[in-house]
Simulated assay, not measured.
Amino acid sequence: MTESNYLQGSCLCGGVRYRAALPVAHASHCYCTMCQKQHGAAAGSYANVASAGFVVEAGAELITEYASSDHGRRGFCRACGSTLFWRSTESPDRIAITLGTLEPEYAGPVEREWFVENKPAWLPLK
């Protein structure tokens, strides 16, 4: 697989490194309160890719998953706390990787916004 065929990323401490095969089905900002709390930000930002193309290249033992709902699982590095992905047990063929962990930064468009009714009023205007 060539570099142009996948996204790659890592956690803050560098202990976890991964790659995810393209294409990205869509990228999104999720304003649900669970994403806000986990990310400590206005939204969780994700690229939705095929689970079959997601490979942890280093640090698999550092990844912990938290069951944030009946169907949602949030993966993070237990050493530094970086949020790495969100996945649904109802759609095991897909995984949503966090845009902020990608290297280089994600260059594609963000096409979707989820739970906009929870979008914080303190976000800056365009």
Score class of each variant (00 low, 15 high):
122 W>H: 09
42 A>T: 00
18 Y>C: 01
86 W>D: 00
37 K>S: 12
74 R>I: 13
42 A>H: 07
64 T>G: 05
34 M>P: 04
62 L>W: 09
116 V>G: 03
41 A>L: 04
34 M>K: 06
9 G>Q: 03
54 F>S: 04
4 S>H: 14
92 P>C: 06
106 Y>T: 02
80 C>K: 12
16 V>M: 01
18 Y>W: 06
54 F>Q: 05
110 V>C: 11
99 L>G: 05
18 Y>L: 01
11 C>H: 00
9 G>Y: 03
92 P>R: 03
51 S>N: 08
17 R>M: 05
94 R>I: 10
22 L>E: 03
89 T>W: 06
46 Y>P: 00
124 P>N: 14
56 V>I: 12
125 L>M: 08
117 E>Y: 13
49 V>F: 00
43 A>N: 07
123 L>M: 15
7 L>W: 06
106 Y>D: 04
97 I>R: 02
102 L>C: 10
26 H>V: 00
112 R>P: 09
18 Y>P: 00
114 W>N: 12
34 M>L: 10
71 H>F: 14
80 C>H: 06
21 A>H: 09
75 G>T: 06
29 H>N: 10
103 E>T: 15
93 D>I: 07
47 A>N: 05
95 I>H: 09
106 Y>V: 03
80 C>W: 08
123 L>P: 02
53 G>Y: 14
11 C>W: 00
6 Y>M: 08
41 A>H: 06
67 A>E: 11
109 P>Y: 07
121 A>G: 08
4 S>G: 02
113 E>P: 07
39 H>E: 09
52 A>E: 15
53 G>W: 02
62 L>E: 12
65 E>A: 11
113 E>L: 13
48 N>V: 14
115 F>L: 10
65 E>P: 05
110 V>S: 02
97 I>Y: 00
126 K>Y: 14
27 A>N: 10
1 M>S: 09
95 I>A: 04
87 R>E: 02
43 A>L: 10
101 T>A: 07
64 T>A: 14
87 R>I: 07
77 C>F: 05
61 E>P: 10
110 V>I: 15
27 A>K: 09
77 C>T: 03
116 V>N: 02
54 F>C: 07
118 N>I: 11
79 A>R: 09
60 A>D: 14
51 S>P: 03
98 T>D: 08
18 Y>Q: 03
112 R>I: 13
112 R>G: 08
111 E>P: 14
